[in-house]
Design a protein around this nucleic acid. Structure first.
Lengths: 181, 181
DNA sequence: GTCGTATGAATGAAAG
DNA sequence: CTTTCATTCATACGAC
């Protein structure tokens, strides 16, 4: 059984002063604290279609991101997992409570209308542009350098891969399976 | 990194019951500011045993609470998440503070004794009467009306339905596919 | 003004 | 993959 020993840190009386504290690297210990650059890169990858990178890709990404700060492959793995899950979660919630503020009558729920909405939503999810793999213009000098490297290989390796798998295979089983029936 | 929307909004109001705040909460940006009624309903639900409502339940609750003011399902989600976590946190603090004033050495943590305590806590947490779903007596006239509605449907309509589809059909293939191997 | 607290929001990590 | 847990960040408010 895994151990839950997360907080063995000195999380005593919390941090004093509510005014000053920036999060910079203030996090004492424990979990990974991604730097802005790391987050940006990860986000870009995500936006470019990467969803569930393979072990190798994770390793790759992790190695590159380590340039910007301490990081483990595990972090990358979790990041994508969480990011994907949460985007879905968010989408699910927004779509449901922003559209029909009311309803909730049973017949409404079981109507074909409901399914229609769901389908639309899924389609939109798939619609994330997988075109511009990397904006290559987002950073300053230092970044752009590293960025290019990443962009390069990802363009081929990860990209070509993720494009296929991250976008087409990541979530298409539903249809696949149905097509078998 | 979703939306890091920093509160640059002049959010007034504020519940807590001190100042004569209004529940209007017409705040267009910034964070959600629950009205007294909303908090009461949420609290009652919590006391009645609700801890981690499903997506559908959240939706349900949210929709109903919207009667008392602006609210999104994510607010409900966070509310329960936070409320539960903080109760647990508080209890944990108390147990460490009241029971064994010392200890907490590593061996203690990994000892059976530690787990025993945790278990007890969890059990008690679960032990909160989940019987009386709704006190139906907490409010005035107006509230009790809405309240009843919530109590009624929460466990049937949407539940039965969404449970099926939201859980089984929404995305069950990945594992299926693997099970073939 | 600072500080402490209550609580909404987010997210890394992990369990299921 | 989904859901839950733990911790942290952010903000509003009140006491001083």
């Amino acid at each position: 059984m895994e151990e839950r020993m997360s907080g063995s840190c000195t999380t005593k009386a919390g941090r004093g002063g509510s005014s000053g504290n920036n999060y910079a690297s203030g996090t004492k210990c424990g979990r990974w604290n991604p730097t802005i650059e790391q987050v940006k890169l990860l986000t870009d990858l995500f936006r470019s279609g990467v969803r569930t990178p393979s072990t190798d890709e994770i390793q790759n990404i992790s190695t590159r991101l380590s340039f910007y700060g301490k990081i483990e492959s595990k972090n990358v793995f979790y990041w994508f997992q969480n990011h994907k899950a949460r985007e879905r979660q968010k989408r699910r919630r927004v779509s449901v409570d922003e559209k029909d503020v009311m309803i909730l009558r049973e017949d409404e729920f079981s109507s074909a209308r409901y399914f229609t909405e769901i389908s639309q939503v899924n389609e939109r999810e798939q619609a994330i542009e997988t075109l511009q793999l990397f904006p290559l213009k987002s950073f300053d000098e230092v970044e752009s350098e590293k960025f290019r490297l990443l962009a390069n290989e990802c363009n081929e390796a990860a990209a070509a891969f993720s494009y296929k798998f991250g976008t087409e295979m990541d979530r298409p089983q539903l249809d696949l399976r149905l097509s078998f029936l």
